[in-house]
């Protein structure tokens, strides 16, 4: 048991370290901007006094290392800084930069909740669906069903998310007005209505993720069914059901957990485009909007959140598959 604890502790430490380095990379990337934020905010016609004022307000007169640690310290406490768009506005309005503004954290919080909701709905549909289909394709491999599924999933994987999104809009929103094509979600909305408006983006993501997940599940199960111990179980005269449930499933857990976690990590990328198509007020849309207006603190914060989620999911996959490995659970 001890060895498992050690391994997991190692993985956790490694994940934390990766996150730290990633934060440095993001910070360094942002600091590669020409000029500095102050000039960026004020534009070219700025007076030197205004630039200096903003610079000291934002702490830009500090050396980069000090600024990194200030930023990191802030992030630890949930303070992601103030958005430039807001700062810019404030400046023109003649107000003090730090007073009466919504911070990046305040901007992100509700949208983060929305994105999580979208991801959860997607996962709730996609995970059971793709696992079932994947297992079926593996069991009936090389049958007509398997071949059609193969072509279908390949097509779905290869299509850009916005193509799938528009096809779904076409069929489920425009031609048959069952679901709204725009997902305007606001606070205090009922769960049912919220779900209905989230359904179309969720279905789009489901199409993308299911294809991946199903193919990976199929490959994992086929690989498993080829093991000699499955043949042995068959040669012991066990029923097909028992072979699957008792001999295949316990060993399939690790690869399946891996597949699910990896694909949820993949969702993170998909969410950006899909949220833009459906104007879904999530973190992905905020990210893209901020990229367009070069609102650096928001971009930086979103990037960090996406990376953290991605690392966390991969880490979870890693740890769960360690836990489900009998060789590690029962050391010699």
């Amino acid at each position: 048991m001890n060895s498992v604890v050690t391994i997991i502790a190692q993985r956790l430490a490694l994940g934390l370290l990766t996150l730290l380095i990633v934060s440095i990379v993001i910070f360094a990337a942002v600091n590669m901007l020409p000029g500095d934020f102050a000039e960026l905010i004020l534009g070219q016609g700025a007076t030197p006094e205004a630039v200096t004022a903003i610079r000291s307000d934002l702490g830009l007169d500090q050396p980069p290392v000090a600024r990194y640690f200030t930023w990191l310290g802030g992030v630890m406490q949930g303070d992601l800084g103030n958005s430039f768009a807001q700062a810019n506005f404030a400046n023109f309005a003649g107000a003090d930069v730090n007073s009466g503004l919504t911070s990046v954290a305040d901007q992100i919080r509700p949208r983060f909740a929305n994105t999580m909701f979208l991801a959860l709905v997607t996962a709730a549909i996609a995970v059971p669906l793709s696992l079932t289909l994947g297992v079926l394709a593996a069991l009936f491999r090389n049958s007509l069903f398997d071949r059609i599924a193969n072509v279908g999933t390949l097509t779905s994987i290869s299509s850009p998310e916005f193509f799938l999104a528009y096809v779904l809009i076409l069929f489920l929103a425009v031609l048959n007005p069952w679901l709204p094509s725009l997902s305007n979600i606001y606070d205090g909305m009922g769960f049912g209505e919220r779900l209905q408006r989230t359904l179309l983006p969720a279905l789009t993501l489901t199409l993308v993720v299911t294809a991946h997940m199903m193919r990976m599940t199929r490959a994992a199960i086929i690989n498993l069914l080829a093991s000699p111990y499955i043949e042995m179980a068959r040669l012991k005269g066990l029923s097909p059901m028992r072979v699957i449930l008792r001999h295949a499933l316990p060993n399939a857990l690790a690869p399946i957990i891996n597949v699910v976690a990896l694909n949820l990590a993949y969702l993170i990328t998909g969410v950006v485009v899909v949220e833009v198509v459906f104007v879904y007020p999530g973190i992905g849309q905020l990210f893209v909007d901020s990229v367009k207006i070069r609102d650096i603190p928001v971009v930086q914060a979103c990037c960090l959140i996406f990376a953290a989620a991605y690392i966390l999911l991969n880490l979870t996959a890693d740890i769960l598959s360690i836990l489900s490995n009998p060789r590690l659970r029962h050391p010699k």
Partner: peptide, 13 residues
Amino acid sequence: YVAQSAAASFNPA
């Protein structure tokens, strides 16, 4: 049936 590789033919779980 007794298989060649016992290590692979016993279910590890």
